[in-house]
Simulated assay, not measured.
Amino acid sequence: MSTGSFENWNGNVLDIGPLYPFVGTEMVWFIICVAFWLAWHVLQWRMEEANYNDDMEVLKKGDNMERALKGEKVLRSM
């Protein structure tokens, strides 16, 4: 891709042409990035909620809560 000649800086910028590829697709890339960002947050929230619920089930069984409060390792490691 040619970015034009910069021999004369007094010229018209529009005559130089695009300085980077895919000029005009910035909004499309922004929308794609926001969609991936939101999807990542939703997936992260679901995984953390499932992990939290699993930990609560383990702590509710028997005397696991008391053992955990005493410092024993009751929950699985990450």
Results as ranks from 00 to 15, higher is better:
Phe36Gln: 03
Thr25Cys: 09
Ile31Cys: 06
Asn8Tyr: 10
Glu26Ser: 11
Leu75Val: 00
Arg67Trp: 05
Glu57Asn: 10
Ile31His: 05
Ser77Tyr: 11
Asp54Ala: 10
Leu75His: 02
Lys73Thr: 15
Glu66Trp: 06
Leu69Tyr: 07
Glu57Trp: 04
Glu7Ile: 08
Gly17Ile: 12
Glu26Cys: 06
Lys61Ser: 08
Leu59Val: 03
Val74Met: 02
Glu7Asn: 11
Lys70Asp: 12
Lys73Gly: 14
Gly11Phe: 10
Trp29Ala: 07
Phe36His: 08
Arg46Cys: 11
Leu43Asp: 07
Leu43Trp: 09
Gly17His: 08
Glu48Gly: 04
Ala39Glu: 03
Thr3Lys: 11
Ala35Val: 15
Leu38Phe: 05
Met78Trp: 15
Met65Leu: 03
Lys60Glu: 07
His41Gln: 13
Gly17Val: 09
Trp40Glu: 07
Ala35Asn: 03
Leu19Tyr: 01
Trp40Met: 03
Val23Asp: 12
Ser5Val: 09
Met1Pro: 15
Glu26Asn: 04
Glu48Phe: 08
Leu43Phe: 10
Cys33Asn: 05
Leu59Cys: 04
Gly71Tyr: 04
Val34Thr: 09
Ser77Lys: 15
Asn64Arg: 02
Asn51Gln: 09
Val23Trp: 00
Val42His: 02
Trp37Arg: 04
Gly11Lys: 15
Gly24Val: 06
Trp29Gln: 06
Asn8Cys: 04
Lys60Gly: 01
Glu49Lys: 14
Thr3Glu: 11
Gly71Ile: 01
His41Thr: 01
Pro21Gly: 12
Gly71Ala: 06
Gly17Tyr: 09
Pro18Phe: 07
Ala50Tyr: 07
Cys33Phe: 12
Gly62Ala: 14
